[in-house]
Design a protein around this nucleic acid. Structure first.
Length: 310
RNA sequence: GGCGACAUAGCCAAGUGGUAAGGCAGGGGUCUGCAAAACCCCGAUUCCCCGGUUCAAAUCCGGGUGUCGCCU
């Protein structure tokens, strides 16, 4: 039995949060965040995490569920978020997934199983092996047990080559076989995906730039200082988030805050571009294109229209 | 006004006689346990303009133009 869920996604700074909360309120649903960084507590300004006011009294799930020093990943997300979604469905309400982390959203919908337990020792071992042997040699070794993956991966793609070895050595099954099997399974949820974007890329970029300025005047630098003072290491995943890693350098005096702000804007634009690349290959997304600036009423109108048709 | 240096892609920049490095930005793409991450692909028929020397010029010569510096 698959439940009907709604997804509001799109690149950063397109107004997903506002549309998601309003839509959920309108249809009596609940929001489940799908944002890899809003997962973390203490990171509010820089992740544009919805404030209590912005949540409009609608229940929001999957926000601030981990500390910045904790390890978190897709598999944990799928595990936690699917519980939220199932619970909402059991209460006869509609889950509204809101966020820009494509991998999290797709994995949640498909109900991906990341069954094999992670073994940090094994991974470290394979990473050392990669560093010593080099990418090309590792691909040759990989081809011996998983030619399919070896062909697809680039020698420089250390992360995925290491993972291919890790899965095989840990489970005895190749990652390509595992992926093929999960792909063949029916999706766990029946989702209507709505993606927000702008007709003109420049409008998106302008929006991003002004939002970064807004974050700075809202005290992003203070937020970063506070997190560092709480003892969070700069090399955690959370502190590698855009806005945080750049400000850490400015706080350390490696460059000026002005330079940091410019870099944050640039990195955010590049991030938005990658998000669009992810979404464009998905034939199941319904797009809403804004002109110049997000239009909440129009977005609500169009998305409720999609819900009636689909 | 005089002297000197420099002019190469949107930006930075290598190349000083043999057929235009590289970096950044930008664009496109990949993505199944760190995903706001990681990885891949793409750019100058031409080097400020005009003429000359040469088999061959971004490279040498002459003249323009522009920018910067120094001097009156």
């Amino acid at each position: 039995m698959t439940g009907r869920i709604i997804v509001i996604t799109g690149p950063t700074a397109t107004g997903k949060t506002a549309l998601g909360a309003n839509l959920a309120k309108q249809i009596g649903g609940e929001v489940v965040s799908a944002d890899s960084m809003q997962i973390y507590r203490r990171m509010n300004i820089g992740t544009a995490k919805p404030t209590a006011a912005e949540q409009l009294g609608v229940p929001h799930h999957m926000l601030s569920v981990a500390e910045p020093w904790e390890d978190y990943s897709v598999s944990k997300y799928v595990e936690d978020a699917s519980k939220c979604v199932d619970d909402i469905l059991n209460r006869e309400k509609t889950p509204v997934i809101v966020g820009g982390t494509g991998l999290y959203i797709d994995s949640l919908i498909r109900g991906n199983e990341f069954s094999d337990k992670p073994d940090p020792m094994l991974r470290a071992e394979i990473e050392a092996e990669y560093d010593n042997a080099g990418g090309e040699a590792m691909l040759v070794k990989l081809a011996a047990f998983d030619p399919e993956s070896a062909e697809k991966l680039h020698a420089n793609d250390k992360k995925r080559i290491v993972r291919a070895f890790e899965v095989f050595r840990g489970t005895g099954q190749t990652i390509s076989q595992h992926n093929r099997e999960t792909k063949d399974l029916p999706p766990r949820y029946d989702a209507v995906k709505i993606a927000l974007n702008f007709s003109d890329r420049q409008d998106l970029y302008n929006r991003i730039d002004t939002r970064v300025d807004t974050m700075m005047s809202a005290g992003l630098a203070q937020e970063v200082r506070g997190i560092l003072n709480a003892g969070v290491s700069a090399n955690t995943t959370a502190m590698q988030a855009i806005g945080y890693k750049e400000l850490i350098g400015a706080i350390a005096g490696e460059y000026s805050f002005d330079e940091a702000v410019n870099t944050i804007k640039m990195e955010s634009r590049r991030y938005a571009k990658r998000q669009l690349t992810w979404l464009r290959r998905d034939d199941n997304v319904q797009w809403i294109f804004y002109e110049k600036t997000p239009d909440l009423d129009w977005g609500l109108h169009v998305s409720t229209g999609y819900l009636q048709v689909l």
